[in-house]
């Protein structure tokens, strides 16, 4: 019989994945946004080679503010720029932005509800060989509790590009998490990014994986392996963690609960 796994919304099977950097997509899109919108300004704290803001710096030096190695100052300089109607994008590594500059993020940017876009590279353990000082297991926990903050975690290169195209339309503080290493391009240009909504990327009724960021490819791979054993799992991509798509979670949980109750009866 061999039922086939059902890929949806432009998602690719693992056999077709190629690795690419999310932070590179960030750097490329900054330039595109800079061309479209004169209000886009970019700040960095001596990491523009690594965060790929170097592309923007080269094309728009007058709209690039190098803050040196001073993340707290950078966060609040961006806050001040935003009061003039600029859309500041600032970048550093996730652990430094949400650790060292958390107070600035909380008390100035978030409390004043300022239009500051915080791009955090090197999220999670994706930093790899740099070790614990540069890894960031805490960043999402540190930003999820902030009242006005919107939180995004793109799965791959293409999703980063789609998010970046949307971000200037969003008003208010926003945090998005990029990685250090190349991650599989599991989505394609056809995969939709709908703010606040989860998107089904693999169909199935035997269970549901909900994933975001680099774990999306792991979830899809898990679904593939389970499919080989005749178990068909749904995979939901949840790129926006705050506000989160509660409905999608509730629907899937309810369906599962109904199944479980039916089996018990």
């Amino acid at each position: 019989m061999a039922a086939k796994i059902e890929y949806k919304n432009g998602i690719l099977p693992s056999s077709a994945w190629k690795p690419e950097l999310t932070r590179k997509a960030y750097g490329e899109m900054l330039v595109e946004l800079g061309r479209q919108n004169p209000n886009v300004v970019v700040l960095d704290a001596d990491l523009s080679e690594s965060t790929y803001t170097k592309y923007f710096r080269a094309e728009f030096p007058e709209r690039f503010v190098e803050c040196g190695i001073a993340e707290q100052d950078m966060m609040n300089t961006a806050a001040g720029l935003s009061t003039w109607g600029f859309i500041p994008f600032l970048s550093s590594y996730a652990i430094f932005l949400t650790g060292r500059a958390w107070d600035q993020m909380r008390n100035t940017v978030d409390y004043s509800n300022l239009n500051v876009k915080i791009a955090a590279a090197h999220g999670g353990i994706s930093v790899g060989k740099d070790g614990c000082s540069h890894q960031s297991m805490e960043d999402l926990g540190n930003v999820m509790g902030l009242v006005n903050m919107t939180v995004l975690v793109p799965a791959d290169y293409w999703e980063t590009r789609r998010m970046m195209a949307w971000i200037p339309q969003h008003e208010g503080p926003l945090y998005f998490r990029l990685g250090r290493e190349r991650v599989p391009m599991v989505t394609t240009e056809e995969t939709p990014f709908v703010p606040g909504r989860a998107v089904e990327v693999v169909g199935g009724n035997d269970g549901t994986f909900i994933a975001c960021g680099m774990m999306l490819s792991r979830a899809v791979r898990a679904a593939e392996l389970l499919a080989e054993e005749g178990i068909f799992s749904r995979v939901l991509n949840m790129p926006m963690l705050k506000p989160i798509d509660e409905e999608a979670i509730a629907e899937n949980a309810a369906a599962k609960m109904k199944d479980a109750l039916a089996r018990r009866a």
């Binding site: 300089t77 009061t83 008390n107 100035t108 409390y111 300022l114």
Partner: peptide
């Protein structure tokens, strides 16, 4: 112009505002 209270933050914000005026 901006919420304050956590000490040490206002000067960076004020500087960002001053740079903003210049960029405008």
């Amino acid at each position: 112009e901006v919420s304050t209270g956590s000490l040490g933050q206002g000067l960076s914000v004020a500087h960002g505002m001053a740079l903003g005026a210049r960029m405008r």
